[in-house]
Computed example of a mutant assay.
Amino acid sequence: MTRPDALTQTTATPHGAVIRLFGVIFIMLGTLNTMLSWRGGFELLSLPVFMIAGGLILCLIGVIIRQSSA
């Protein structure tokens, strides 16, 4: 029979992983939107640029949280 605390230790996600995942998603969406605008010949809007910058900031926050919890 397994102990409840041993079960939670194996299934727990590392601290900051969800924040980094959202950051990576924002970076990918911003990059894809930028490439689509570029390929279509449209002007570059500020939304994809802010999505990429926000994604980088979220990734940085996730890394800092992971380093502080270790």
Rank of each mutant, 00 (worst) to 15 (best):
T2G: 02
T2W: 13
R3C: 01
R3K: 12
P4R: 02
P4Q: 05
P4H: 08
D5H: 13
A6D: 15
L7A: 11
L7F: 05
T8D: 00
Q9M: 00
T10E: 14
T11K: 00
A12H: 04
H15I: 08
G16I: 02
A17H: 06
V18T: 08
V18F: 15
I19N: 13
F22C: 10
G23S: 01
V24G: 12
V24I: 10
V24R: 02
V24N: 03
I25K: 02
I25W: 06
I25Q: 10
I27F: 05
I27C: 08
M28T: 13
L29S: 04
L29Y: 06
N33W: 12
T34S: 11
M35V: 12
L36P: 03
S37W: 08
S37P: 04
W38H: 11
W38S: 09
R39F: 14
G40Y: 06
G41T: 00
G41I: 10
G41L: 07
E43K: 09
E43L: 15
L44S: 05
L45G: 14
L45T: 02
S46F: 06
L47I: 15
L47R: 15
P48K: 06
V49C: 07
V49L: 14
A53Q: 09
G54A: 13
G54Y: 09
G55F: 04
L56H: 08
L56C: 15
I57R: 10
I57N: 06
I57W: 14
C59N: 13
C59Y: 07
L60F: 10
I61T: 00
I61C: 02
G62W: 01
I64K: 14
I64S: 06
I64N: 04
R66T: 03
R66Q: 15
S68K: 15
A70R: 13
A70S: 08
